[in-house]
Design a protein around this nucleic acid. Sequence first.
DNA 1: AATGAATGAGCCTTCATTCAT
DNA 2: AATGAATGAAGGCTCATTCAT
Lengths: 198, 198, 198, 198
Amino acid sequence: MEEADNIRQAPRQKRARASVDFILDAATQVLERDGEAGFNTNAVAERAGVSIGTLYRYFPDKLAILKAMGMRETVAFRKVVAQAMAGETEGLARDRAVIRAFLRAFQGRTRARQIAMMAMLAHADHRKLAEGFGPVETSFTDAAGKALSPIAGFVLSRAVQGAMRAAVLEGADFLLCQEFEDELVKLSRAYLGYGPKA
Amino acid sequence: MEEADNIRQAPRQKRARASVDFILDAATQVLERDGEAGFNTNAVAERAGVSIGTLYRYFPDKLAILKAMGMRETVAFRKVVAQAMAGETEGLARDRAVIRAFLRAFQGRTRARQIAMMAMLAHADHRKLAEGFGPVETSFTDAAGKALSPIAGFVLSRAVQGAMRAAVLEGADFLLCQEFEDELVKLSRAYLGYGPKA
Amino acid sequence: MEEADNIRQAPRQKRARASVDFILDAATQVLERDGEAGFNTNAVAERAGVSIGTLYRYFPDKLAILKAMGMRETVAFRKVVAQAMAGETEGLARDRAVIRAFLRAFQGRTRARQIAMMAMLAHADHRKLAEGFGPVETSFTDAAGKALSPIAGFVLSRAVQGAMRAAVLEGADFLLCQEFEDELVKLSRAYLGYGPKA
Amino acid sequence: MEEADNIRQAPRQKRARASVDFILDAATQVLERDGEAGFNTNAVAERAGVSIGTLYRYFPDKLAILKAMGMRETVAFRKVVAQAMAGETEGLARDRAVIRAFLRAFQGRTRARQIAMMAMLAHADHRKLAEGFGPVETSFTDAAGKALSPIAGFVLSRAVQGAMRAAVLEGADFLLCQEFEDELVKLSRAYLGYGPKA
DNA sequence: AATGAATGAGCCTTCATTCAT
DNA sequence: AATGAATGAAGGCTCATTCAT
């Protein structure tokens, strides 16, 4: 209801809501299959099974689709993070849970995600994309129990994500190795001042 | 024989060498001025002061220009890193020197660089771009004097760069603050096991 | 049975009659506000406060709206002319009354009318638009009391209107000056053979 | 050289000059054949025998073509008028010569011209189109040898042209009759105060 | 009768690339 | 080697019109 920013017409009927989702799904698929070069409105509409006119009913222009994809991913990511933070993932320290959740998101379709991620990085509003970090940043406390400064929170969250993104973008083969996850956790904990063995 | 991947003809004469540089300079300027949308071969050629035909003598296609830009930046970055690593920057610890060199590179043209960086991230070959990290990764040793594992080297270098990139991409206003630099250094040292006061 | 040429369904109910008028009013406003480029069926329907489907109940296609606008203007013009001819405008010679009535019609919204007029000129059926001249042409008599030939009637009416239209289309600033009106009257009378002082 | 207003690139080579003329000729033909509805850039380019890209090399957009057509017609009209004014058309009074020149211009392709004229009226810059009248207006003198006031000059020139245009637009069958010409001349002379038999 | 979501033909325009000069 | 006019495939987008509800 309040995501109308990039949406031409708030789709209240379920049919309309479905159209938006079809289009976003189709956009993801097109991006994964053909890369950014093949990402054009006609292809997306066709893949979504809607007419080009319908596509333009819900998105003012091509870029808005890309942005909406970014937002949808971000929202999904936030949910995962929130779950991890809430300790729902039992038996795992929260930091490890968040990192693992992110890494697992790429399971199986690494190459495809790489393209989609690059396209998104190129066009999305990084400020908005980053909003999801807010809760993560503010929730961390260092070994002494002190809350992080805003800059420290920024550094930690972006550093961990930067390493994970780089692994995806560079097609690193250790993306799903345990050692990689361990090192990320180690980075986080070291920064927060927990002992190396924590 | 030594024809580079993306260069049609190895430019041996100085005039040709100059043309390539003019084109790359022009490409950077166009990207900064008009964003990726305005980045087209005709604009680049015009800005470079060469004909479109000449541009195509040196670059097989548009993408090659973007890739070459990425490579040139990378080479420049490597040089800075190498200098910092060599301790040429007197009175500064090597790690801090590298970080500072990177941060300073954005001084004054943050917004422009953001666009250029996004475009590059979207199209460049991340594997090749990352090659510059090789020396950095392998040179670091932890507090115990032990060399880092490849994955650990990867995590450290990408984490630091990830945080710096994010600051640029998100338009963070603390990009040139001392605290930001300090936190990056702290991140690096904590990960390597140096005491928090190091 | 009495289905007008450009009207799908003779609107007998007042509500329907009102819809047609709303649409025509809206069409005029859209044309004045956005020019011909912005003149599309969706915009007209929205401005009229009816659905696009309803618009198509009363007009078979877009062009019909433009034609109906032209006809409505013509009818209104005829009424003014008839009044002037009937001497209802007291104290003014009939010819001057007709000319003044036309000129006054543009008072206050010159620019808007210019666009509307151009659009109408471009699409309307000029033969039909001109029918309103019939009574004017045949009613004039020359100084000797002889009726005008059809061609002479045509020349006189179109000449006067041509000068007035040109003043609107060229944005002449003397549109409402007394001298302009005087010259038009003079033209008319001179042609009819009345002395220059008439 | 100074018509660059609507021309993207001053065509100095003869080939380029020819392209512009081809395009303008083609535009006229398309307009005459298919009306304004069929007047699209692709059709014009095809008819002109040039690629759509070439068309856009010389005209920034579709409207510019229409405007250039208007200007070309105006320039041609000016030439005819100038000739008539210069008395080159021997044995004919100057006013009659101008009128006849205009009327003859429609010979043979009345219907086609009507469409073209309407399209031009709808989009052209009427101020610019009217510039050609300058010399005509200022050259006329009344029966007493006195120059006309600006407004009187305007009224005379637009009145005569208005009647002629109306004949074209309404498809009048007397367009080329002698009586029509005679009445136009009579209108002009009566207005200027020459005796009815002049 | 009214609605308005959906359709899709088709238009304008861009720009990577070629090649005759 | 360089030039730059020409090409034309491709794609973003509009909007007149339909029809299920």
